[in-house]
């Protein structure tokens, strides 16, 4: 089974998913991330899914789980780079990923974590 590498940039952990995810890989990633957040004291987690061509309910649930888990350890999670087709399918599937922050790309995701401007997102201002 492949494992998804976790990179550390400053106090942000970056997970860039480049493989076709199977359920075991997803579960392993959740565990690895929890370990790394604790070990590094990271303030944020970015999951880059630019290369992911499907997100089903299992993978979607992973995002939500990682988000709530990392929040408990005082780290914010941002999912970046979701493709339009994936987003449309997730909505159709009935998954809204409540509680998971999202950004268009890696750079914008870093900005979300780096300087949380209260006025950037509506509903929070």
């Amino acid at each position: 089974m492949d494992r998804v590498p976790i990179l550390k940039i400053g106090d942000v952990l970056l997970v860039s998913i480049q493989i076709d995810l199977q359920d075991q890989t997803v579960l392993a990633l959740q565990e690895d991330l929890a370990d790394r957040i604790v070990k590094t004291g990271a303030r944020g987690v970015i999951i880059d899914i630019t290369a992911v061509d499907i997100v089903d309910s299992f993978i979607g649930r992973m995002f939500a789980t990682i988000a709530s888990m990392s929040r408990l350890m005082d780290a914010e999670t941002v999912v970046v780079g979701m493709r339009p087709a994936v987003a449309i399918t997730l909505v159709e599937l009935g998954l809204s990923l409540g509680g998971v922050r999202t950004a268009l790309d890696l750079e914008k995701g870093m900005r979300v974590l780096g300087a949380p401007l209260p006025a950037v997102r509506p509903g929070t201002s």
């Binding site: 499907i54 089903d56 493709r83 339009p84 087709a85």
Partner: peptide
């Protein structure tokens, strides 16, 4: 179309699981 491909592949993933 890409969107419909994604939909049927996602459905397949749910069913296969």
């Amino acid at each position: 179309s890409l969107v419909d491909q994604t939909k049927i592949v996602t459905a397949a993933s749910e069913l296969a699981r």
